[in-house]
Design a binder for these strands. Sequence first.
RNA 1: GCCGGUGUAGCUCAGUUGGCAGAGCAACUGAUUCGUAAUCAGUAGGUCGGUGGUUCGAGUCCACUCACCGGCACCA
Length: 643
Amino acid sequence: MPEITLPDGSVRAFDGPVTGLAIAESIGRRLARDAAVIRVDGELWDLTRPIEQDAAVAIVTRDAPEMLELLRHDAAHALAEAVKELWPETQVTIGPAIENGFYYDFAREEPFTPEDLERMEARMREIVDRDEPVRREVWDRDAAVRFFREQGEHYKAELIAAIPQGETISIYTQGAFVDLCRGPHLPSTGRLGKAFKLLRVSGAYWRGDARNAMLQRVYGTCWATQEQLDRYLHQLEEAERRDHRRLGREMDLFHHQEEAPGAVFWHPRGWTMVQVLTEFVRRRQAAAGYMEVNTPEVMDRSLWEASGHWEAYAEHMYTTQTEDGRLYALKPMNCPGHVQLFRHGAVKSYRDLPMRFAEFGKCHRYEPSGALHGLMRVRAFCQDDAHVFCTEDQITAEANAMCDLILGIYRDCGFHDVYIKFADRPERRVGSDAVWDKAEAALRAAIGSTGLEYTINPGEGAFYGPKLEFVLRDAIGRDWQCGTVQVDFNLPVRLGASYVGEDGERHVPVMLHRAMLGSMERFTGILIEHYAGNLPLWLAPLQVQVATITSDGDDYAREVVSRLRAAGLRADVDLRNEKISYKVREHSVAKVPVILALGKREVEERTVAMRRLGSRAQEVLALDAAVEQLAEEARRMGSVPTQ
RNA sequence: GCCGGUGUAGCUCAGUUGGCAGAGCAACUGAUUCGUAAUCAGUAGGUCGGUGGUUCGAGUCCACUCACCGGCACCA
């Protein structure tokens, strides 16, 4: 005789065990139709699962925001059922809900084709139309293992066998499809709806381990309503429109070619953008007490063996063998070079600390071919790198200042949504546990003293020390990890850095590693996508395009450009014998933020007709006023992207 | 690196069962002096990613290879 308490506080008594579906029906038909699951004393249950005890419940309908995950999980099951119907020899493995959708990993000899994807999706829709009941059962674990083995589902059997003793093994059945699953699920396949779409098929390793077999992963997206699905598909198109590789071509910023995979050919405009960013960081870090340095790009193998890089990353380093038989490596990092600077010359005193070395160092890493991606993942890149040599007592203040510097720089680049992760010791590392304890404690103290929120990213530290990872969210909600602050007690020891302390004894300095933008290449790519190419004036490589309407304006146009340039603006003039609409289109496609059109009227009145990228409106201004206004705007930073 | 896909003019893309490599835009030449996202006409442009093979004949079929795209793994 369970007594069921509803969210409004009313209580209903039932004669015997009652299901969520029955409770929903007792409240109303419409609710029963839209119900997805039931919350029983805070826990989500299947609607078909009998409630035997008194409980406080709430029916959750399928359009509740927290039901998206469940819908997506159900979509994954429908996908698996469809695949098993179409290709029975396929083994199913796992199929979770993920951000914006779901996937399912299948084991099958023959690869799925894009056409297969269409067949799967069509079959999923049939399964929804069939409205098959979804049943939950609790099985004995050995029986479950035996069952799946007999079915030829060896991956499933392995999963069940790995479940700890004593845990409930729930099995869900829909139609002929039987799957191990934690649940809960919708009561029938019809409730899934049809706001889903299969997107792509790709490879994925069993259990995410490259040593294991490669499975076939089918990705899909799923939403509560068709409108939500359409909105998401539209977002995907938006991301496509912002792709820095496409914009890089349209804006004439850079290119790649086969002879230099993973390297960038920067065009004048693209390189201007990189230079603007570099100058910006240079000014900021100089103001924060950093000294800019430069260290060799090619150094003897022995140095990399001493630093530990050789052991950890030899296969990812470019090397060059010279005539004298020596083996050199192109630097993959700047830190060992900076330690050489610290070690050189007179022994350092505690009075010299902290010493802050910054370098825009060009590094080379032989990244796996499959990882390369436009500017985002390259083999040759420039880091805005720095290393601070300090005493243990100085760690907190130094790391703290780094956080301030980094966050300020992001703000000025237009990123206002930033979060921080604390990456602690990885499995593969150098240094004793005691040293790691100390390094992690020091970094935790530093981040604690900033008052900034952070999450833990377990096991993701560098091989020589723990790190803070700065992640910024772009205009369309994607996350990019850029800056890092790392505490390192190991490299200074390995490379023999020391200073004389107040006590007259030799001590090993602590080394803080820091990057803010990370890779200049990658950050440039992120900015392009963040702003969809519509860069704020201070970042735009060409800020003002002056364009004549007829050749009568040529002399005045040249004068306008020199005035703009004299005011520090990057301006160019277009005197071609083309219609103004042609010029406007061309410079708009190239994303030049400001076009000044000059016709007869402007020449006579010494004005300019100013047109902003993305706007059809024109504003006629006196030349002096326009120059002043643009110069002022070009100094302003921190603007948020417009859509 | 692994799985799958794609490479044809600067860009976007056609190219049938193997039978003379195409279009639009861009470029160039000429005309047009024009008021805010494409003026008109003409010309030129290709080792069909590369190497090897099958064939009388390969953009098309086969093998290898390189690069790129989507994932996975990796990311000091």
